[in-house]
Design a protein around this nucleic acid. Structure first.
Ligand SMILES: [Zn+2]
Ligand SMILES: [Zn+2]
Ligand SMILES: [Zn+2]
Ligand SMILES: [Zn+2]
Lengths: 543, 543
DNA sequence: TTAGGTTCACCGTGTTCA
DNA sequence: TGAACACGGTGAACCTAA
């Protein structure tokens, strides 16, 4: 029954490589972050991380437990999940569901790998093993209703049309609806039609799908309202889109993302010297040094009188610091720099006798005398960055920005996948993501999911379980598993999936679901945190 | 069947109060932390939080995802669990299982509360509700074997004797063994005999119990080797003891703590001699040492003239000590370290003839010459710590901090419970803990759990599932639930339980299970992280 | 006390935009 | 034109292990 399992891709290799790279990336970026940004706080700020520093997360104890538990969760999810999430730009859809896919792959392969190392069959272990025919449907077959027979590919296959049904579409048996309302592509990883393979009989009931998310157990028995308006498609702008291959999607989206003005590439990469060229390297000649020293001296003496030192040597306005070798106010600093950079100072002319008095009020009157006084004040033309210098500085900055941008774009281009990934592996995962997206789109959120109260929330859970379940179910290799294995994997995958889905979709800014910036989010019925609070006995658990 | 549920204690009140206190504590300490310590890192450090600051946890992105996921996990566990863990001193037993108990209580109450708010019955919601007779045993009844009939109190009750069976004890049906091998007291929270109450028929199979820990799913179907030595009691010392009331137990058990068998491993704990070596790696070569010595000498002779020895060899500013092999002032030291750490020194350029004079005033002017002069002054690039070194340094510091924190916590011990807890509530929880401890002790770890390989690990999982399952099963109120509810709760509780159990029992220092400092730990078969690695497809997931 | 690392307020560039 | 800002280097002050 389970002997001849051959995965369609070398998952182990993919994941191993992936995770290793992920770790490398983590480490290296960690390093550079530390090197460049000594302040952890700043890092967090930049990373938009600080929002999550809720009291509970940073509190000595709760935080510790959190991370402890987390370390175990990480075991289950693996760094892979982290890495996937590394590149989750707001605009890229489905990335969170990649996690699910990966997780699915992980559990399945782990499962099989372990069994393969063994006698090859569960029974061989002497365990009171599960029956081959899963108790999942055995248990429910007595109920007779709300089962989804997937006995053959025929039942499972699919006409792509009904997802545009108006909300008012009359009720149908979920089973029928599910069978008919599917999308046509892509159906599985390889693009083949899914078929149920060697499985003789298969039923998956709503309850099956709901066994996973045990975290939301309170909802379990109360979920549903299946008999009431289940079929309506989701409203919202996203709902009307035809399915588009995610790659096409990406391409079109991208065309409007990066600004064309963002520097030609060669210029960005051309500059080998990032730092040396910066401000200090081309500093004053000995003469200038001299003057600089004098400056310092001058400065130092009146330093005792703070007032004095804070006065612009040119116009007398308040100065904050030295500029180009002399104490100058911001405006004189800007004036001096502009004059030098543009070379305009060469053609300044005094309307008077080149000895105009310069004060804050009349400093605009005579550029010539203002500039002259600046120089007398110790400000050095050569201390203004030359064009070349500025070029270099710019180049460096841009190169850096560019790098970041590039990374980001690459990620987008890769559909939220790390660009270090093997093209083949990326393909696989992209297909999974596409499958997921299509599947999620194929089941609209029923009407009774809307309303943001406890009951609709329960219905929403049901619906998401369905989506996840169907998604897993459609992954090609899933079909080759026996019922027992399928149910095991469903339990795992859906539980974790709803977890992650919820986490990723949460809009922490407004304390509600869904978060914006994601195509899928447009269709998700809004739920407020308050509602979820009511869903538990334990409202205080939410900070 | 679910109507007349009356908990033996006011769980809701307990939890609500508790969590509120937890939050108060959290907030107040949080506030002061932030007020006094602007550095997040410092907070974390003080909070003993930092040990878990692995690159992956601190990395902006992965860390963020981690916390995100975490926030959902926290939802499930609740602040209560956090608070419980507040006071987990290494020497106090069972605290980790309190978490389980609390979690159990939570889910049960949540479940009931939700139902109570409704029509009072699941069916009232119009859901395709679960059958009253749980599918758990329906599904398995066809197998006929390896079921644990708990039809009546009679079946469930227990003769306390067989736990002394020698390891070589011949095989028995698990069912028999479990029924017979139980402890006699305490059977439930109030000390009454557990009875199955209104439940007509109940079966719980091994498989039932194993549906919870889906996180470890790979082990699921492959666990076992039941047919082979399963019945033997654990070889550890605990196995042979008569059952003792857990409270007495706490007092007496310490005497026999280290089992002769598990002792040898202590040597493994003993030597964490990882530290010293690292820091020394980048020490001065003989030549450098020589120069360093000379430096010292130079310093020493004029030491009388403090002035002389206190001069920076680079800029002439006052220096306080040697740095990187040369006498340097603070700023030159910082400059040198920065330059090396960032690698920027490679791209320094001199605007002049590479012989700029360096003085305190103009040291900023030419980075190239300043760096050059630093080297001439005897400062060695290699003396600056590499990133790896810094990593190690950090790790060590954190480990130490953690140790201290832990020691501090030891003092706080209050039977593993927060001393802010109501005496009554504490009693309840202590009883739960006692029940748990007794239950865990009542099922010895079978022989085939020992050996620290993948197979034994699988067996170990099975055994822990059993323990947890039995523990839940023995909680008095559990008996009043209908089968459906029971199975739901088992699924939840065991999954989470094995999670927490594993997390708490992990010895992160030596990367193995179990951690020291816990009575129960002495009986847990050792498992190395390596073994667990083999258990997954994904070895790299472990840092 | 010495000598490593870290932090953070500050300084002085350049850039933007009203 | 000049106020306001972004960015990266600087160094005094600090922490920590030996
Ligand atoms: Zn001025
Ligand atoms: Zn003039
Ligand atoms: Zn110096
Ligand atoms: Zn120079």
């Amino acid at each position: 029954m389970t002997g001849d399992y051959t995965p369609g891709w070398d998952t182990t290799r993919v994941l191993a490589t992936w995770s290793k790279r992920a770790r490398d990336v983590n480490y290296s970026s960690q390093r550079s972050e530390f090197a460049k940004q000594p302040s952890v706080k700043r890092i967090l700020k930049q990373a938009n991380f600080d929002h999550y520093l809720t009291p509970s997360a940073t509190h000595p104890v709760t935080g510790r437990v959190a991370l402890l538990t987390l370390s175990f969760l990480a075991h289950a999810l693996g760094d892979t999940a982290h890495e996937v999430s590394t590149v989750r730009p707001p605009g890229v859809p489905c990335t969170h569901l990649l996690l699910v896919a990966v997780w699915y792959m992980m559990s399945k392969d782990a499962y099989y790998q372990y069994r393969a190392e063994d006698t090859g069959s569960v029974d061989g272990l002497g365990l009171p093993s599960l029956p081959n025919t899963s108790y999942w449907y055995d248990a429910h077959s007595s109920m007779g209703s709300s089962l989804y027979p997937v006995t053959s590919a025929q039942d499972y296959v699919i006409q792509n049309n009904e997802s545009q049904l108006p909300i008012s579409e009359s009720y149908r048996e979920p089973m029928d609806w599910w069978a008919e309302n599917d999308v046509s592509a892509p159906r599985n990883l390889t693009g083949n039609l899914c078929s149920i393979g060697g499985v003789d009989q298969g039923y998956l009931s709503t309850d099956d799908l709901m066994c996973g998310p045990s975290e939301f157990e309170p909802a379990g028995p109360a979920m549903g309202m299946l008999g009431n308006g289940f079929v309506g498609p989701a409203p919202g702008p996203g709902g009307e889109r035809e399915y588009v291959s995610p790659m096409e999607d990406m391409a079109t989206d991208e065309s409007l993302t990066p600004s064309p003005q963002s520097l030609p590439e060669d210029s960005a990469f051309a500059s080998p010297a990032r730092k040396g060229a910066a401000s200090d390297t081309r500093r004053p000649s000995p003469v200038q040094e001299q003057s600089a020293k004098e400056q310092k001296k001058q400065k130092k003496e009146p330093k005792e009188k703070v007032k004095e030192s804070k006065k612009c040597g040119v116009c007398g306005d308040t100065a904050r610091s030295m500029h180009f070798g002399g104490m100058a106010c911001d405006s004189c600093k800007a004036f001096f720099r502009r004059s030098v950079q543009s070379g305009a100072y060469k053609s300044f002319q005094c309307p008077e006798n080149e000895n105009c008095p310069i004060s804050k009020q009349n400093r605009k009157v005579c550029q010539y005398c203002r500039f002259k006084k600046s120089q007398e004040n110790g400000m050095e033309i050569s201390w203004v960055m030359s064009e070349t210098d500025r070029m270099v500085l710019w180049k460096n900055r841009l190169a850096k920005q560019r790098q970041e941008q590039e990374d980001k774009l690459k990620d987008v281009a890769y559909g939220g996948l790390p660009h270090t990934l093997d093209p083949d592996d990326a393909d696989t995962l992209r297909n999974l993501a596409a499958l997921q997206e299509a599947t999620f789109k194929s089941i609209p959120y029923p009407e009774d999911c809307y309303g943001d109260n406890v009951e609709t929330l329960a219905n929403l859970f049901v619906c998401i379980c369905k989506k996840l379940g169907l998604f897993f179910y459609r992954v090609e290799d899933f079909q080759y598993l026996c019922k027992t294995d399928q149910s095991l994997l469903l339990k795992n995958g859906i539980g974790m999936g709803i977890y992650l889905h919820g986490a990723y979709m949460f809009d922490h800014e407004n304390e509600r679901w869904p978060a914006e910036g994601n195509k899928e989010a447009l269709m998700i019925p809004p739920v407020s945190l308050d509602t979820l609070r009511k869903f538990t006995v334990f409202p205080e658990a939410f900070e």
